[in-house]
Write a protein that binds this DNA or RNA. Structure first.
Length: 279
DNA sequence: CACGACTCCTGCTGGC
DNA sequence: TGCCAGCAGGAGTCGT
């Protein structure tokens, strides 16, 4: 499922085909995503130029002069780039190919079988997109210089929930989903069940560093291959080849050979090594 | 405020 | 071999 690295990999693949280009038309075949896709999307966007494509957490922000198109990939969404060239037709849309953004030279296609994704419009007249209800409560970016052990420490003092669930909540730091939460906690040697407020400054420092490193490494290799994540260029990522704990229940820890433990936290699977993660 | 349960949806898994 | 119930999962929403 797309977490921050997969979204960032997607953003980088889209940017050269989208930034500074004029959107010719929008085809919406299925409006029923997490929230209904706006009815007037084509009228709002056709003939308008995408100035920039940014990422905030797991959201992609397609910035136009008159507003921002907000997209989220949910569990199973992908944006895929298809060239539009004479003699090489864009493939016919398949069942789950819900949206096409047509530029002169490319078709950017949203596929989302589970329809947990979103595509929303935020007009300039409604205020800065950063204040949109979906974005306003988000935590700091993990690559922001302000994200540190101290930040983690400060924002977890009032949190009694397990540290794994606080990471997933996204209001402290964004972009850490189920895979990278388990992997980051493993790297930091921290037990995922530990109440967040019981982490001291030292452990917060280790965890903040682990999160940034794990996410950066995942971006560098093109995102996770879990659930067939394929980048916008059609090339699969490699992170899962290197997972230390995720989906490795019962298998030997790569560091100490202890069988990896799987537990449920808030209806979600957490994987950890009970020997390596005792901090 | 913080937390946990519930919810959306479909592909995949496992049991028979 | 085939069918189908049950589960997983991001994150907003709601009740406590």
């Amino acid at each position: 499922m797309p977490e921050l690295p997969e979204v960032e990999v997607t953003r980088r693949a889209l940017a050269p085909h989208v930034e500074g280009r004029t959107l010719e038309s929008v085809a919406v075949r299925e409006r029923r995503l997490r929230w209904p896709v706006p009815l007037r999307l084509h009228e709002q966007l056709a003939g308008r130029r995408v100035e920039r494509i940014d990422r905030r957490g797991k959201y992609l922000l397609w910035r136009f002069a008159h507003g921002t198109l907000i997209s989220h990939l949910g569990m199973s969404g992908t944006w895929r780039v298809w060239p539009r060239e004479p003699g090489r037709p864009v493939p016919l849309p398949q069942v789950h190919d819900h949206i096409d953004l047509l530029f002169r030279a490319h078709c950017i296609r949203l596929t989302d079988p589970r329809r947990f994704g979103a595509l929303l419009w935020s007009a300039v007249a409604d205020g800065p997109v950063e204040g949109h209800p979906l974005l306003a409560g988000l935590g700091i970016e993990p690559f922001d210089p302000g994200f540190s052990g101290e930040w983690l420490y400060r924002l977890t003092r009032s949190r009694s929930a397990p540290i794994k669930q606080v990471l997933l909540a996204g209001d402290v730091v964004v972009g850490v989903g189920n895979i990278y939460a388990s992997e980051s906690l493993f790297r930091a040697g921290i037990n995922p069940k530990l109440p967040a407020r019981r982490l001291g400054r030292a452990r917060c420092g280790l965890l903040a560093a682990a999160i940034s490193e794990v996410l950066a490494e995942a971006i560098a290799v093109g995102g996770s291959t879990l659930r067939d994540f394929v980048g916008a260029d059609g090339v699969a990522g490699y992170f899962m080849n290197d997972a230390f704990v995720y989906e490795r229940a019962g298998q030997a820890c790569r560091l100490c050979a202890t069988p990896i433990t799987r537990v449920l936290q808030g209806q979600r699977a957490t994987y950890y090594c009970r020997r390596c993660q005792r901090r």
